[in-house]
Amino acid sequence: MDPALLVEWLVKSGVIIFLILTGFAYLTLFERRVLARIQVRIGPNRAGPLGLLQPLADGIKLLFKEEVIPDKADKVIFILAPVLTVIPAFVLLAVIPLGPEISILGRSYSLSLAGDVNVGVLYLLAVASISVYGIVLAGWSSNNKYALLGGLRSAAQMISYELVLGLAFIGPILLANSMSLKDIIQAQSRVWFIVLQPIGFLLFLVASIAEVNRAPFDMPEAEQELTAGYHVEYSGMKFALFFMAEYGKMIVVSFITASLFLGGYLGPFVDKLPLLGPIYLLVKVTLILFFMIWVRATWPRIRYDRLMALGWKVLLPIGLLNIIITAILVILVGGY
């Protein structure tokens, strides 16, 4: 194996982990500040300038908290569950190109960890389908009925919305005639897929918010009825890991949305200045994250049976219809 390649992979993995970790820390601050603004409050602004040191303070606080493991809990799975929840959030980003190919010192580097994977979209689906385990196991191993209910709810919810998510993936795949994310982004050089796939985009947006268990679909942790759902027995750093997973997934889902429907790293002058690519992508991701927080601040949580009905009786048929229409149009007009 080429040692230079190994170093390249290590550096890229480091960058991805750094991106998710700092992204997680500052997304919590971003969310609290935006929520506060929407609710006509000020939000955390004491720790450091503009409250910029607040995530650090929170992290230190959580590190020094006592870790409580309930007496009747299943210890092995109780400890394993937060880890299983966090890993998918970290590995998802591997197939997403953060920018066009960049050449430094005569070598060209693709700005994604895995390079150009021809089953990139399927990889995203596969990892997303695994990510439900951490939450379900956390709920079960806590030996607490609220936690178990939260875990079961999340299992049902994530299975249901994964289908819609998968159906929404198919539109861009059909248009780009490829499952590689690089090809899908390149196919959007003329017009973004949000224009050609408006229904697909909306489906994806709704399904992805449900998939990361965000409001208004935050059933698994509905505070008023389940105290906090699956992580009610967790404390200290293990509790923080669940939050890291939730916010990490928010970030990754935003990256996926931007890549599939908003042209990814594409933007004016990217072909001349490739380093602009990651900047465009980050701007798009920040806008989507802002949208998610905005939704949380303005929409009430929907009832659990309505949530399942929405997934199976409304979104799924629309998704199937969208695929049929897209497929017919691609045959008649031709894809990109």
């Binding site: 689906l125 389908s129 439900v132 994964e162």
Partner: peptide, 29 residues
């Protein structure tokens, strides 16, 4: 790679989650 991804999505992702769901719901752990 295609079979690998489908294996994870369908068997490890969908089917086993349903199994786990039933095990927990019925309390037959």
């Amino acid at each position: 790679p295609f079979i690998a991804m489908v294996q994870v999505t369908i068997y490890a992702g969908a089917i086993m989650v349903l199994f786990l769901f039933v095990i927990m719901l019925l309390g037959t752990d």
